[in-house]
Design a protein around this nucleic acid. Structure first.
Lengths: 247, 247
DNA sequence: AACCTCCATGCCGTATTGTGGAACGCCGTG
DNA sequence: CACGGCGTTCCACAATACGGCATGGAGGTT
């Protein structure tokens, strides 16, 4: 359904560029004005878009989209359960904390973020995605998945992003075992150069992983000696979120 | 654009009923199976929907929508600015705190929530909507809007939800003046019976209201004597969020 | 086991629906 | 005052989505 696909792409474009004008969108997509215009009006009528209050020729996202929450958030209860432990972790380590969920084992999606106050920090926006095989959050999820699912995942090919990226299925399996042993996953330059992350999984009542909490910091600030302590703190935070979520 | 409108309604239905089957959706809308099916497949390809991992005949919301979510929160900076003051307010009063934004002066949408730990609490999920004229959050917004906009709003008719609901425009105007004088809005049984709320607005640099912070508690726990103190705390929290948001 | 029901999926002729070029009207500018 | 940029509206065309029907499994019942 062409018009539907296009509408959603326009919706996403509005989200990224808001508040945005019709003209800017037509340039962005190279579509006729009338087509984009009709789409915007339709999205507006549905409540997903609205005109900016100051400049009514500019469009922005309506609050309606908040009612549509991914199942991965367990209807926002996961979100709510994670918030305070994440803030506490940030206060303890003063580094940026992320909460990510797997999207159909395709990629990890950043769901929530608590910033540190260093001048130099890592930045991942809410909604950003990253590959499962090359991030700490992804490893934390994979390590706690039932074996058949991991095997199915390991049949795919793994894109490399640098020297550190694990592209060999066998190597990934041993790394996942290490993650299980330690209780947390570590990523240093596997995906984004200069970024280091330590992650642990949030589980549901049956032990399947729902999400991962991660501390993310610039490699320049990472001291290997702090790793065991950071890992322990992240794992504790994840465990606390798991517990709160079940309650 | 019929198909777009329908797709969005289906998307919302999936969000409300997820994980949901094709059959359930067709019954819900009274549409032919193939129509709904095609829509689901399209939404899935766009990444907004996905099949449930356990039961692949059930559909749920995909994580893609999160990319659009922050935009609904004024570029998420408001959201980030509000979070910690809200938690502090909750810690002080031990009641549930809500952050709501107006949706095109149609309704208030709950954007964020921090729970208290009482066994009896009010409950409004993130994404829930409520009428502007019958809630404390709505009054907090309306009270700080430029007069012409309020007048335009006051031309509509106000649905009543109980004896306390303000349905008369003139009465609303005097109530809004009272809100301005006090610095906070109060709602007792205007919308939902047995629920009491105290709210204050978060403003942008030019004084237009962006959102409202509210303390929400069961009427049974509300002591009129505490009102001035609660009102002061809510107003202070809102002011702090305003300040953080500008910084 | 054989039957039956429910459900998701694929197909295809039809006409409904969305398409996009063009013309219009409104501002702000040179 | 004329021009250029922009959002909005119109309309004939045909591409597109519609929905009835048929197919193929998966589960449950007798």
């Amino acid at each position: 359904m062409k018009s539907v696909t296009r509408s959603l792409r326009i919706l996403e474009a509005v989200a990224r560029h808001q508040p945005v004008t019709l003209g800017e969108l037509t340039k962005l997509f190279g579509l006729p004005k009338s087509t984009v215009q009709r789409t915007l009006v339709t999205l507006n009528e549905a409540g997903w878009l609205r005109a900016n209050r100051r400049d009514t020729t500019r469009w922005e996202i309506g609050a309606r989209v908040l009612a549509v929450r991914p199942a991965a958030l367990q209807g926002s209860s996961l979100f709510a359960a994670a918030r305070e432990p994440m803030i506490r972790l940030r206060d303890t380590v003063n580094e940026t904390i992320h909460l990510s969920v797997p999207d159909a084992l395709q990629c990890m999606v950043v769901v929530d973020r608590v910033d540190c106050d260093h001048a130099v920090r890592t930045f991942h926006a809410i909604g950003d995605t990253s590959p499962l095989h090359a991030t700490a959050a992804g490893h934390a999820i994979l390590a706690h998945l039932p074996n058949p699912e991991v095997e199915e995942f390991a049949t795919g090919t793994f894109e490399g992003y640098g020297e550190e990226t694990i592209t060999d299925p066998e190597e990934l399996r041993t790394e996942l075992q290490r993650v299980r042993d330690r209780g947390y996953a570590v990523n240093h330059n596997q995906y984004l150069q200069g970024v280091c992350a330590i992650a642990a999984p949030v589980l549901d009542g049956e032990g399947t992983p729902l999400a991962a909490v991660a501390v993310s910091l610039p490699g320049s600030r990472f001291e290997p000696g702090r790793l065991p302590e950071l890992g322990r703190l992240v794992a504790e935070t994840a465990a606390e979120i798991t517990a709160r979520h079940l309650a």
